[in-house]
Amino acid sequence: MLFSLSSTNISERTRELASMKVLGFYDKEVHLYVNKETLILTLIGILLGLPVGRALGGSLTYVLNMPSVHFAVYVEPISYAITALISFSFALIVNLMTNKTLDHIDMIDSLKSVE
C-alpha cells in the first residue's frame, strides 16, 4: 500500500520534481525531499495507529465477550516497539525502491507536458 501511495505521489508530481532537477538540485536532495514526506507520514501513522488500534481491539474483545468464551488479551510492550520498527523499516525499503523512479524522471518530457 505504501509503495502504491509513493508511486502515485511521484507520478503526480513529476513536473515539480523535474523542475527541481532543472534548477540544479542534486539527486540526493530530490530523494530527501520526497522521502522525508513519506517517513513523516509513516511516523504519524505509527503514533496514531498504535493507540487507536489498541482501543479498537479492546472494544472488540469487550463486545465479543461471551459467558462461555473469555478473551484475555494482554500485549507485551515490546510488541508495540517491534510493530513500529517493522512499519518504519518497510517505509525505508519503499523509499529505496522509489529512489530509482526519481532518478529516471525525464525532465524534458515532464516539462513539455501541458496541464
Rank of each mutant, 00 (worst) to 15 (best):
T98A: 05
I86S: 10
Y80K: 03
T101F: 02
V34G: 01
L5T: 09
R15T: 10
Y62N: 05
S87A: 14
F90W: 05
V114R: 09
L111I: 12
T14N: 02
S19D: 00
G49Y: 05
E37D: 08
N95Q: 09
F88N: 02
L41T: 08
L60W: 09
H31C: 07
I86N: 05
Y74D: 13
L92T: 07
L32Y: 08
N95S: 14
E16H: 09
H104Y: 07
S4M: 11
F88P: 02
L2H: 09
P51R: 03
N35D: 10
G57F: 10
R13Y: 05
T38A: 05
K112N: 10
F3R: 11
K100M: 04
T38D: 02
S11L: 12
V94F: 06
V75I: 15
V114P: 00
R15N: 10
E29K: 07
L60D: 03
D109R: 15
T42F: 07
L43C: 12
S7K: 12
L111W: 04
G24Q: 06
N35Q: 13
K36L: 10
Y33D: 12
A91I: 07
T98G: 00
R13H: 15
K100F: 08
T61N: 05
D109T: 15
V63N: 00
I78K: 03
L85T: 15
L64W: 09
P77K: 04
Y74Q: 13
I82K: 15
T61K: 04
M66E: 13
S87R: 00
P77F: 09
R13E: 12
A91H: 06
P67R: 03
G24H: 04
A55E: 13
R54N: 02
S4L: 11
V114C: 01
I40V: 14
K112Q: 11
A84D: 08
L39S: 03
M1N: 06
G24S: 04
S113F: 07
I86Q: 07
S19C: 08
V52M: 13
F3S: 09
L60A: 12
L48Y: 08
N95R: 05
S7G: 08
N9F: 14
I86G: 03
K21W: 06
L92V: 13
T101S: 09
H31W: 14
F3W: 09
V73P: 02
S87P: 00
N95W: 04
E29C: 02
K112R: 15
L41K: 13
T38H: 08
R54W: 13
T14P: 01
E29A: 10
I44H: 01
S6G: 13
S110C: 05
L5H: 09
D103N: 11
I93H: 01
A84S: 15
S113T: 14
E76K: 08
